[in-house]
């Protein structure tokens, strides 16, 4: 069977760029490990019955005193297997990151399309709002939205909704780059004659925007989505590190780093190091892959 993708320039170049291949496979392995955390993880870190406090602070590669299994990355103060905790933390970090990027993409692409295509006052209002938002660091915006949302929610919902709130606050803080890029591309596309010919058919604005313009502006959106994914995961980790993110019973990578930080100076270095390294590897692989994708899809750099 012939797959058209395997014959494209993109794939040809991908095969010949070791950094792209490496970063892609590192990312793929991390994602697979997060998805199949239930199967891969030697322990279920959230099952109190399986924990034994006497296993606390076991260094990496040491055996469990009771069962003899080896703790690959050591344990934390509660005797939880760090490797398993990281796998489950990755799952939360990736989920929050992906959903936040999806939200940011939907908001940004919609507003950018409207601003670029309709123009006029609506364009000014949307883009000035984007300008104002971008003057604040996105972590600050996310914290602000997170705080407001937590305040608005009834107390009994706060706990269950915390991941949703986190996704919304990160998503709302990252939409600006999408909107700006999409607006720029829309301004170029809407002057093209195929759009004029669609207008001559009396098609409505939403029809022209979705059917004609959107498919032609997706490649920059893809690049920004990749880079924003790394940003969103780091933002989530930062928020969790500061203690405003996911609840401690569902630790993400950021939460694990925060916990590990407490033990850094008492000699238990592994509790901090392994979650931090995982985060580094994840963000780095996404960024390197995103950089390659940007260079490939940018006609000026070809």
């Amino acid at each position: 069977m012939k797959l058209p993708f395997l014959e494209s320039d993109l794939y040809y170049n991908f095969k010949r760029t070791p950094v792209a291949v490496l970063s892609f496979f590192v990312f793929l392995i991390i994602v697979i490990m997060a998805i199949f955390a239930d199967i891969i993880a030697p322990h279920t870190p959230f099952e109190p019955l399986t924990l034994n406090l006497l296993n606390g602070f076991t260094p990496p590669m040491q055996a469990n005193e009771f069962t003899g299994t080896i703790f690959l990355m050591g344990t934390d103060d509660q005797g939880r297997d760090l490797f398993s905790t990281i796998l489950f933390g990755l799952r939360i970090s990736l989920f929050v990151g992906l959903m936040a990027v999806f939200l940011a993409m939907v908001i940004g692409v919609t507003l950018g399309l409207i601003a670029g295509f309709v123009g006029g006052v609506l364009d000014s209002v949307i883009m000035r709002f984007a300008d104002i938002q971008i003057t604040f660091p996105s972590i600050l915006v996310a914290m602000l939205i997170y705080g407001v949302a937590k305040g608005l929610l009834p107390p009994d919902l706060r706990y269950e909704m915390s991941i949703t709130v986190l996704i919304i606050s990160i998503g709302l803080s990252e939409w600006v780059p999408f909107a700006r890029t999409v607006r720029g591309s829309t301004l170029v596309e809407k002057e093209k004659e195929y759009v004029i010919s669609a207008r001559m058919l009396g098609l409505s604005y939403p029809q022209i925007m979705v059917r004609h313009i959107l498919p032609n502006i997706l490649s920059p959106v893809l690049v920004i989505a990749t880079i924003t994914l790394a940003l969103a995961i780091i933002t989530e980790a930062t928020l969790s590190f500061l203690g405003v993110g996911v609840p401690t019973t569902k630790p993400s990578l950021g939460t694990l780093i925060r916990i590990g930080q407490d033990f850094l100076f008492s000699g238990e270095w592994w509790i901090l190091l392994f979650p931090a390294l995982t985060l580094l590897l994840l963000a780095l692989s996404i960024n390197l892959f995103g950089d390659w994708l940007r260079d490939m899809l940018n006609p000026k750099l070809k």
Binding site: E193, Y194, A198, M200, L201, G202, P215, N216
Partner: peptide
């Protein structure tokens, strides 16, 4: 009233097949 444009490169949506391009006015009206 219909129009034919100057640039044959910009006047067809690059992501649409010829059949879909020609079907569009038929469907629109």
């Amino acid at each position: 009233v219909q129009m034919i444009f100057q640039s044959p490169y910009a006047s067809l949506n690059p992501r649409w097949r010829v059949g879909d391009v020609l079907k569009e006015p038929i469907k629109a009206f």
